[in-house]
Design a protein around this nucleic acid. Structure first.
Length: 441
RNA sequence: UCCGGCGUAGCUCAAUGGUAGAGCAAGUGGCUGUUAACCACGAGGUUGGGGGUUCGAGCCCCUCCGCCGGAGCCA
């Protein structure tokens, strides 16, 4: 329908006659005057229907309209300060494309379960479209960032033969006469590609069958994982902070209206500049073991942090709630981290790894490390972790033929979207959330 | 899996152990500038399921189901 004018372009048609297609977002009636708010994906515009100015059949048809019915409107674009958006449509003609029965979602408060059950319709709301546009901007900026820096996108497989990292629970699927598993990370597959192309990344869905029911967990989520040859931990920290600062900058530059609609405090995002805050695991542990912080854990009924263990959700909140920029915690104890992480030269009990914690209590958005590049050390670590060697033989091969130091990290898209949008839960950051108790719609 | 909270009209929520209610939506009527419009009227219920205590249970007890988010694990 080439002759349809988009709402976003309506301001360029003042005084002219236009046709517009869309959905009825809102209706108000005042006797012989009716107001209809149309949405078309590019914006919202109010149409005014005056009984004396339209043919009787148009007026009659307008009386039957319902929320979310699809229509084509004909009218004149006019400026009027009384109208929301100051440009409105004085209606002359009305074509009903499809009449919607009673629409389940009202312009009022609804519960989480109800909205998630109607996710396919909830997507039409202003808030959800704003979030989806920010997500789109984040995904586009990720691709631009790596493309501009000479990285090659490598698509890692979604079906994998076995667990490579151990602990995490995997989704099992039938693969002809054997079993396969949905990927929990593309890392092992892009490390070989890294040895082919130097700088690579993968970006796709990831699956974890963990029975987590928290505001930060999905069973299906998207992850971007760069991997760089000849990069050590220091190089990785610089890449990670440049990356996150770039994404935030792009969203601020191009999606400010959406952030404002989400009532995001923009000043908190404008402070996200490099360098980010750095601390070692031991420094973070010292901080968490201060009496006042231990007291806060008790007060919040959170588990008490003890040195040598990984941080819990509340620990991450304490570490970041007063931070203006993301915090990068490095050098965790090697035995609480993955088998492939390079031990620190000065203190081999520590891994050359990093977790980036987003501010305002959003917690871990990035986890990464320098990888072990020595064949025998990696083999030793695989055996020590009790992992079967045979399925990882190809991975060990990378350390056999021209091995070089290399590093990489993974960033969870949904946690990043939740942080940038200021959302309390990741379920609204992905079009169709998959969670412990949610597989539909 | 464990801990805690919740479940009442289509939706959001009230209701000392004593006749189940309101707002919104939907319906009817009114209103020529509404901004989640407003006014009037009518309609709307197996109080998540089952069992128990009691003269009497939406409310107390047991059990099952569902939801929420926290722990563990993680991005």
């Amino acid at each position: 329908m080439k002759d349809l004018t988009l709402i976003v372009d309506l301001k360029d048609h003042i005084g002219k006659s236009v046709r517009m297609g869309g959905w009825v977002y809102h209706l108000r009636s005042s006797g012989k005057l009716r107001f209809l708010v149309l949405r078309d994906g590019t914006g919202y515009v109010q149409a005014v229907i005056s009984k004396k100015d339209v043919p009787e059949e148009v007026w009659t048809l307008a009386e039957t309209l319902t929320y979310e019915s699809s229509v084509v409107l004909e009218g004149t674009a006019v400026e009027d300060p009384r109208s929301p958006g100051s440009v409105e449509l004085q209606l002359k003609g009305l074509e009903l494309i499809h009449l919607s029965p009673e629409y389940p979602i009202q312009p009022k408060e609804h519960g989480t379960e109800f909205l998630m059950d109607h996710r396919h319709l909830w997507l039409r709301s202003k808030r959800q479209t704003a979030i989806l546009r920010v997500r789109d901007e984040i995904c586009k900026s990720i691709r631009d960032f790596y493309y501009d820096r000479g990285f090659t996108l490598i698509d890692s497989p979604i079906l994998t033969p076995t667990s490579c990292e151990g602990a995490s629970t995997l989704f099992e699927v039938k693969y002809f006469d054997e079993l396969a598993y949905l990927t929990q990370s593309g890392q092992l597959y892009i490390e070989p590609a890294c040895m082919a192309l130097g700088k690579v990344y993968c970006f796709g869905p990831t699956f974890r069958a963990e029975k987590s029911k928290t505001r930060r967990h999905l069973t299906e989520f998207w992850m971007v994982e760069p991997e760089v040859a000849f990069a050590d931990l220091e190089d990785l920290l610089v890449l990670a902070q440049d990356f996150v600062a770039y994404i935030v900058g792009r969203v601020l530059e191009r999606r400010k209206e959406e952030l404002k609609h989400l009532e995001r405090d923009l000043s908190k995002l404008e402070r996200i500049t490099t360098p980010f805050i750095r601390m070692t695991y031991e420094e973070a542990a010292d901080f968490l073991l201060r009496p006042e912080n231990q007291a806060r854990m008790k007060e919040a009924e959170a588990p008490l942090f003890t040195r040598g263990n990984d941080f819990g959700g509340f620990d991450e909140t304490l570490l970041t709630q007063d931070a203006e920029r993301p915090v990068m915690v490095t050098h965790y104890p090697a035995d609480i981290k993955a088998f492939y992480m390079q031990p620190d030269e000065q203190d081999p009990s520590k891994a050359k790894c990093v977790d980036m914690l987003a501010p305002e209590g959003y917690g871990e958005i990035i986890g990464g490390s320098q990888r072990i590049h020595d064949h025998d050390l990696l083999l030793q670590r695989i055996q020590k972790c009790g992992l079967p060697v045979e399925p990882l033989q190809w991975y060990l091969d990378i350390r056999k033929y021209g091995s070089v130091p290399h590093s990489g990290f993974g960033m969870g898209i949904e946690r990043c979207v939740a942080w940038i949008c200021g959302l309390p839960h990741v379920r609204e950051t992905i079009p169709y959330a998959r969670m412990l108790n949610r597989l539909n719609p």
